[in-house]
Amino acid sequence: MEQKNYSDDELISYLDETLPVHDRERIEEKIKNDFAVQQRIKELETIHTILSDQKGIEHPSANFTEKVMTNLHTGRASGYFSPTQGMLLLLGLLVASGLSLALLSSSTGGQLPGLIPQEITSFLKNKMHLPTTSLDMKQIINGVTAVNLILAFILLDRTVLRPLFQKRSEGIR
């Protein structure tokens, strides 16, 4: 196997100009006399030059500060719900689901008397030619309750659990 008489670390330090003078001279001597070193320094130099040319500090949009200052107390700038807002929404969803279930348990035979006035239903049927088949309200409310519960779980995850675990993992000092 080919034995290298230089190390990449030395060459990189040479390019960074962090080598002491005597080491620097030694490397320059190697560059003059050793083709392999010449090749390697060329490769590393290309990387060094291209990286040095990268874009410097970039600037955010003009209203950056304004956005930050507006959202200082709302939690996030990126439009997510804060934990408090999330908890309130969650509570709202649970209350809505509870009410639906209570309504359902007080109804009989899948019908919900009094929920929609008789005049309105007959008007809709006559004027809008709605189908005469009666809707099973029990199934509809069950569906709505299920969707509510799914939304509640998503909200709980996004606004309470994830931020909590993220905060722990980021370990702000």
Binding site: P60, S61, F64, V68, N71, R76, A77, S78
Partner: peptide, 12 residues
């Protein structure tokens, strides 16, 4: 930009 804004809010 959103991350940087959130960072400032969090820092505050």
């Amino acid at each position: 930009e959103e991350i940087a804004q959130d960072g400032f809010i969090k820092a505050f």
